[in-house]
Write a protein that binds this DNA or RNA. Structure first.
Lengths: 295, 295, 295
DNA sequence: ATAGGTTTTGTCAAGCTTTTGTACAT
DNA sequence: ATGTACAAAAGCTTGACAAAACCTAT
């Protein structure tokens, strides 16, 4: 569970599938493991040792002889493996999925803490959080994840993203107004996009899910943002509002993002489509703003 | 229920369920009560004293030993008064409304920071945040607030509440599972209620808005919570699901809260209605859990 | 079920599922629990103790041997913070001091994680981190803290602040160049100040401690920042460089901040003094920039 | 793989003390 | 009403024990 727990030989055997006698033999013959000892002489193994045994068995399963397998394991033993493995985005994403699927809130927070200290917000969002959410959606569609798991995960992640968002309307940069199209409930992608914009110096005002367009128009008038981004996961939400969108877009720059932001649908509504990739979208908008109002 | 009613020891005993001898012992040993005396020496107790005895008995029912229970009662006696003395809830609520109405995110955060530093979570929620949200809903119904303002405020507050919620499934007491009924999108009341439960020692798992009942049933089976609370702002959401709710409630305690939790609707669905006031609801549930799980 | 109730061993046993004998054995053998005692010698446990027992049992259920499980529990002991829902800045500061003084790096990280999710960066820095550093300096001056503790704490905090600073030179806002005066080694205050500026939309370039003024002048020429802030904790570092500072300030706005930034010293060097309070300083600079370059 | 010895760990018992609700005499 | 007494319940310490898990060596 933890990174620094110690296992006795019985537990190592249970977790690795190798008998205690065999583990002792591998230690004596090949120096595969170097457990520390308790005051009474009991062997105590680290999780790195467990990993070594796993690799050893994998080699054996491939037909490598024991002596050579052990040598290979020790050779490829680049020190604190598990600690480094934690920095691999795929591993973190996997760990995030595991904890959230199990409704294990404290450890999910720990994983996110680790992620946020190890990575930039850009990396955390594009390499871990957004791919995870995307994957979760797929699993839900396939019936491999329950709505409960999906809501639980979304709530926890929303909390962390809103934590990062704190104060994002403050400061000197241009203001971007964000909102989901009417009937669109998926706000996490837009929230993430807002964070990517924020790290690029924008000020953000986020109206969240399901925003009626007349109200949006009023808010544009009140806040006078530099530009507005509306989001949708399906082009279907655009068509019913083409006319209204076009009216607003005539007096104010409107961008549309999310999986539903197809070129054709955007063009029909007289607004500008953003790339599907949120990082590319953030860069594109920032680039554009920099051009219009250079330094 | 006057503020200045005085009880003699027999009446206090009858109302509190503790024998006169015991009440005197608690006074002598722990200083739990400080009754004034009649000219003839008869003890005269206030209603605050009755409340102390009730709290004492609740602690005892939870398994706390008498000396420690009395200490806890006395400690929580002086606590909130001193802590919150400097704080005017109405002023803070007004300030919160002003900043949020103006989409002034940084200063809204500052107000909330101030509130959280100056008040307990209980006070912050029941005196400021929940009244503000309620008032915002009223203003929206009257057309005095736009959906944009409402979404903006809800998102910001949700972020702060989720920040406070961090780690709330960890460690101690019994586990409470929370969810909104199907089609119910208002999750902030439930979230606040979860925080109130948390400060009373519960562990929380929150499934958020719009949770299908079959999935809820599965999650109950998986997590084995001590009880489940579903929320709705209107009784209309209960009727279509009466049968399913009843089925679940037969094998697991289900409570229903929120503005829509009328007695009649709850009874029809075979579940227990909670008081409309979230603080009272949290107290009621905690009370009940303490009663059911004595020695 | 308050956060400060005390349990006798029987109740702890009932709530945790471990027998009283076993609890005493764990205390004696591994020091897992440190209950206070009643005047008569009865063990009184806190809810944090209950949490420890729960974690102990969870480890045991995973197959970890008792001695190692206890060691793991004690190692990951983040104090009473996680058990209570206490987000009082003073409590967090105290917990930060406790963990850092004990060179308890993992738990210090946990405390900081908690702080960053519960509070805004502004609050975290001004209410917790900076007061803690100031207090640490005082204690060191009085001989109550060792240089080792001071270095350890500074290094850990610097790492976290740098983590928050990631990407802070990116984006659209005006660029602020930060540097400590020659011989000035205290860079954490400046780093914090940079973060406060960042949340107000600035881009930041930080040159860190002990920066020779000719190099600073060159960097100003290269980066063309919007303004430059130099920091010092004592006015003594200003006097030797008055002339050079004045020369630079003739062609570029220079501000001076930190405890050493007295009005008189600043005036003598022809630069602008900032308020001693970093939050006020950040606001002042941002205000000024907004005036000069509106919208 | 087995044998024989050691360490670890949960449990129990004996004898004594503290805590606490109730009872009784003044 | 007060104060003392009392007995049951719950705790404390010391010491010991046995099953399970481990060790080494053959």
């Amino acid at each position: 569970v933890q990174g620094d727990t110690l296992l006795r030989i019985g537990e190592l055997s249970r977790r690795s599938g190798a008998s205690p006698e065999l583990l002792r033999a591998w230690e004596r013959r090949y120096g595969l493991l170097r457990p520390i000892r308790s005051p009474g002489g009991i062997r105590l193994y680290s999780l790195a040792d467990l990993d070594r045994v796993h690799r050893m068995r994998r080699h054996l399963a491939c037909g490598i002889a024991a002596a050579q397998a052990a040598a290979a394991v020790l050779r490829s033993d680049a020190g604190p493996l598990l600690a480094d493995a934690a920095l691999d985005p795929a591993a973190i994403r996997h760990e995030l999925a595991r904890t959230l699927d199990a409704f294990d809130e404290p450890n999910a927070h720990t994983v996110i803490d680790l992620l946020l200290t190890a990575a930039t917000i850009d990396t955390a969002l594009t390499q871990v959080v957004l791919p995870y959410l995307h994957d979760l959606g797929d699993r839900w569609a396939r019936g491999d994840a329950s709505i409960a798991q999906e809501h639980f995960a979304a709530t926890l992640i929303r909390g962390r993203l809103l934590g990062l968002a704190r104060g994002w309307s403050r400061g000197l940069g241009p203001l971007a107004l964000l909102a989901c199209l009417p009937d669109e409930q998926h706000d996490l992608g837009l929230l993430s996009f807002g964070l990517l914009l924020r790290t690029r110096g924008w000020r953000i005002a986020d109206l969240g899910a399901d925003m009626p367009l007349p109200t949006l128009a009023n808010t544009i008038h009140t806040l006078q943002p530099h530009l507005t981004v509306v989001a949708t996961v399906t082009p279907k939400r655009i068509t019913p509002h083409q006319a209204k969108l076009r009216t607003i877009a005539e007096r104010h720059p409107i961008f549309i993002g999310g999986a539903g932001a197809t070129q054709s649908a955007a063009q029909a509504a007289g607004v500008t489509a953003l790339p599907a990739d949120p990082l590319a979208a953030a860069e594109a908008i920032t680039q554009r703003a920099g051009d219009h109002q250079p330094d």
